[in-house]
Simulated assay, not measured.
Amino acid sequence: MASADLLLHPVRLRVVQALLGERTLTTGDLHAELPDVPVATLYRHVGVLAEAGLLEVVGERRVRGSTERTYRLVTEAASVGPEEAAGMTPEQHRRAFGTFVAALLADFDRWVDAGAAAPGGLDAARDGMGYRMTGLWLDDDEFAALVADLRQVVGDRLTNGPDGERRRCLLGTVFLPG
């Protein structure tokens, strides 16, 4: 199954997103992060992702007569490459983008819900949460340089791990021609 086919399912995309940032989680941990997903459904989709090589087992332990596995995202396998994207139909692109936006909205809703329940309520500045759309005038070379710069800036921070001070942040990017 191609990466796009795997990732176009909303539950599988949410599982992948939960593991972003070099996280290792059990299915129990995943269920705690995705409580609206029935356990059997979650196990089925984790199994599909693991069988396809998007998730790898990094630990196992016995828990009450069964084996609990800890998973890690295989980041390179969990993305749609340029060749695969070039072969997608317009409808597949629409579906992929819609799934991406739905997952982004779900993450936003979780932030809003958590903030509304937290002492002090929602505080975008405190949480470092923001969204904006900016129009840029760029030729092809300038656009390529922008993408390279962003990859460098983000890439420099991809190896950061949790250390008690850091918190996990999700960065979503969308480039649309104007």
Rank of each mutant, 00 (worst) to 15 (best):
A2K: 13
L8H: 13
H9Q: 12
R14N: 03
V16G: 00
L20C: 12
G21H: 00
E22C: 10
R23Y: 07
T24G: 09
T24I: 08
T26E: 06
G28I: 10
A32H: 09
P35H: 04
L42K: 05
L42T: 04
H45F: 10
H45N: 12
H45A: 05
V46A: 08
G47C: 06
V48L: 13
L49P: 01
L49M: 06
A50V: 05
A50Y: 03
E51A: 15
A52K: 07
L54K: 01
L55T: 03
E56R: 15
V57F: 08
V58N: 06
R61D: 10
E68T: 15
Y71N: 10
V74K: 02
S79G: 14
G81Q: 08
T89A: 08
G98I: 06
A102I: 04
L105N: 14
D107K: 07
D107L: 06
F108R: 14
R110S: 05
W111L: 11
V112F: 05
D113M: 11
D113A: 15
G115S: 00
P119Q: 05
G128L: 03
T134G: 07
L136F: 06
W137M: 11
L138C: 02
D139F: 00
E142C: 12
L146F: 10
Q152K: 09
D156R: 10
G161K: 10
D163C: 03
E165F: 09
L170E: 06
L171P: 05
T173P: 04
T173E: 11
F175M: 06
P177W: 09
G178V: 14
G178K: 09
